[in-house]
Design a protein around this nucleic acid. Structure first.
Lengths: 332, 332
DNA sequence: ATGAAAGCGCTAACAC
DNA sequence: GTGTTAGCGCTTTCAT
């Protein structure tokens, strides 16, 4: 591997001049510029970004934390982030947490070590205070995760309102016995907390009962959806909900799959409301009524914000693009 | 940020002793071990991985190249790779190519610069010879991409045979006018070349015509699927295929969606064969007949192979887990 | 405009 | 066992 020294020797110049050339310093004579360029080409030289980073303490790596990349919501989010990052010359390092705070810690440590120079957290597990503190090592932004108690920039949508409206929609359609799925727990802070608030607001407003047997916590996958459906169906018919609000289309599809296998009708026997509006949800045996999330905008805005933080410029998030909308199809 | 020097000073020792401690060198007295540990904790010290890499020329970053992370085949593949990598203490840097060789070049340059220490290419665009040459900078393995002319380790399945059998299956079901989709072109090397060979072998064997209007190249997305279906339907009915083999379930779903919208019956008017066996393909309005790929094994084996190359040990890929199987449902 | 030289934080001979 | 010292490849004063 050729180094800057080799280039300098070959061009018969000092390393400083070559370094200046590399950093587009003004005032280098055209003659020397040419000699340097030639030398670099002859030696097939590439600057070592490791050495550069060591000296200048700058880098171009953005970390992304998601719970599961196989969830289309996250893969589309990552796609949006990567596109935006690339445009600014940044690369992305992805890590999945699988809801485990150890992975999250590992990523935060990478921020401390400058392996990454900024972090977008699309999933947050750990303590708000602790995450806050890591901001001394580099900027962090929460993407689609709301923790009012954390002093960390957050790019969010109004999930409370969207959930409230979705439940209202169910009620207007004459469903009264409404079951509820969440990725977190009913008591935890972050993770789906705001959605739960919207759910509770709508239910209380209509004086509808929130039954323990109709609440499902920590569900995420298709398989989780199967389990939920199984439990639901095992309930005595008199105590079975007539609709279920889910926290993701993956869960909704799991429920739908199991329900149909048991020869129940959707939405006649049970209505299913999804969340995310993932691809193909319109193509299912029973097209899913769901809530569309502005994934591309969420990713782009978070990234623009983070990069402005890294580069110490300012950026104002465009909240107008961050609207949630109900997509009505057949499952409700 | 505390450095090794600070720790040494605080523990009243030399940097070398601290460095030895960091690298688990044998023979450090317990007394000093304790002092070092204490000093590190007091200073909240974390070694700079940048500096370490600069000196030791070692790192723990694996690059992954995929065409589109939003394609579930790839997101599941990435998931498998990341899991395996993590187990060995490696992290993954992901980059999407969108079938553009510039992105690929960028990743190869990162290998040269030691930003990554090994590369798994789940998508290859550039010239075989060129990629080969980059192996001087670090190991590369192709995952699910077959280029016999490239001297690069490849973890592959028998796509030629699977496609051959799938076409045979169509023919046995009495379909004769078979259309074909590919992600590449009919002439290119890598990308789907082997599948095309299987297709041609089966068609020739049965002396069936391969019609130009029935071949679709460079199709990848749902939207591409819509376009394919549109073109198919616009053909005069006498010249319309009765079955179509696709290169991915995403394309198949696009075709299915458009076809159903036009009030055609699947498989009666046209049969559709998918590829990948992505999640939910069993849950569609017309459950998809498709080919299951051993994604998890593909990812795990590629990663194990790459890590063995990085660490200069040996690993023999377990080919027995890499079988393709036809999943029969309703679309054919 | 260009060069000399001092580090960035760490590792690895080489001494003792 | 432990310390001294010379770099890794680059940037950045400080001279000239």
């Amino acid at each position: 591997m050729a180094t800057i020294k080799d280039v300098a020797k070959r061009a018969d110049l000092s390393v400083s001049t070559v370094s200046r050339y590399l950093n587009q310093h003004p005032y280098i004579s055209d003659d020397k510029k040419k000699r340097i360029k030639a030398a670099m080409e002859e030696l097939n030289y590439t600057p070592s970004s490791i050495a550069t980073q060591l000296r200048s303490k700058k880098g171009t790596m953005i970390g992304i934390l998601v719970s599961r990349i196989t969830n289309p919501f996250f893969s589309y989010l990552v796609d949006a982030i990567e596109k935006q990052a690339k445009e600014h010359g940044y690369n992305v390092l992805i890590m999945q947490t699988y809801d485990d705070s150890d992975a999250e810690m590992k990523m935060l440590e990478m921020l401390k070590q400058s392996v990454i120079n900024g972090l977008i957290m699309c999933s947050v597990e750990g303590d708000a205070k602790m995450i806050e503190d890591y901001q001394t090592f580099g900027p962090i932004v929460f993407c689609n995760e709301q923790l009012p108690e954390a002093a960390v920039p957050q790019v969010i949508t109004n999930q409370e309102q969207a959930t409230y409206e979705a439940i209202q929609f169910l009620i207007k359609k004459n469903y009264q016995k409404i079951a509820y799925c969440t990725g977190g727990t009913l008591t935890t802070k972050g993770h789906g907390k705001t959605r739960t608030q919207g759910f509770e607001r709508a239910m209380l407003e209509q004086k509808l009962a929130i039954k323990k047997e109709w609440i499902f916590q920590q569900v995420h996958t298709i398989e989780d959806g199967h389990q939920v459906a199984k439990q639901l169906i095992e309930l005595p018919e008199s105590n079975r909900p007539d609709a279920i609000f889910t926290n993701s289309d993956e869960v909704a599809m799991g429920i739908l799959e199991y329900t149909l296998q048991q020869k129940l009708q959707v939405p006649e026997d049970i209505a299913i409301m999804g969340f995310d509006n993932q691809p193909f949800t319109s193509l299912l045996a029973v097209p899913l009524t769901t809530i569309n999330q502005p994934v591309a905008a969420l990713g782009a805005e978070s990234t623009k914000l983070l990069i402005s933080l890294i580069e110490e410029t300012t950026y104002q998030v465009d909240q107008s693009q961050l609207e949630l909308t109900l997509v009505q199809r057949k499952s409700v």
